[in-house]
Simulated assay, not measured.
Amino acid sequence: MKNRKPIVDLVVDVGTLGTHMVVCTFVGLAMGYYLDKWLGTKPVMLLIFLFIGIAAGFKNVYEQAQRLQRRTEMPDDKDNSED
């Protein structure tokens, strides 16, 4: 049972990568839609905030992947230094 915890943690962390991308994109899309509705600038704000949301999603995915990579490499470095 102890061996399954790192696997479950890894699956959860990988699942958050996709969630970051989807949530950021939809938040940008929603912000652009409501700003267009409020300001009367039909597709302009929607497109701008959609691209901002996509860029933010990629940034979050990249940062999460870096954290995940550092965390998975740490135990290997400890084991190699003890040899």
Rank of each mutant, 00 (worst) to 15 (best):
L35M: 15
Y33T: 09
S81M: 08
R67E: 09
K78N: 09
P6D: 09
I52D: 04
P6A: 12
I52K: 04
E63Q: 09
L10P: 00
D36V: 04
P43Y: 13
V27C: 06
L17T: 03
M74A: 05
V44H: 08
N80E: 09
I52S: 06
L17W: 07
L35N: 01
P75R: 08
T41Q: 02
V8P: 00
Y34R: 13
D9P: 01
T72V: 14
K78H: 14
G40K: 04
E73Y: 06
V27S: 02
Y62H: 06
L17R: 01
N80I: 07
T16A: 06
I7G: 08
T41D: 03
I48R: 14
V12Y: 12
N3D: 15
D79G: 03
V12N: 13
S81Y: 13
M45Y: 13
A55P: 03
R67Y: 08
Y34W: 11
N3T: 05
M74S: 03
P75S: 06
I48Y: 15
Y62T: 11
E73K: 15
N80P: 00
T16E: 06
F51Q: 01
Q64N: 14
Q64P: 02
T41F: 06
G40P: 04
L35P: 07
Y62G: 07
V44T: 10
R70G: 03
T41R: 00
R70T: 07
R71D: 09
R70H: 13
L29D: 02
D36F: 05
L10N: 10
H20W: 14
V14S: 05
G40M: 02
V11P: 01
K37G: 10
D76R: 12
P6C: 13
K2Y: 08
M21P: 02
G28K: 03
M1R: 05
L35V: 14
M21W: 09
F58K: 01
F58A: 03
M21I: 11
M1K: 01
I48C: 05
A55L: 13
L35R: 08
M45S: 10
S81D: 14
M45H: 13
R70F: 12
P6S: 10
S81H: 05
R70W: 06
D77K: 14
L68I: 13
N60H: 12
K42W: 10
M74N: 03
I54F: 15
V8N: 03
V12L: 15
V27Q: 02
G15T: 11
D83Q: 10
P75I: 11
E82W: 08
Q69T: 15
D36W: 05
T19K: 04
A56Q: 11
N3S: 08
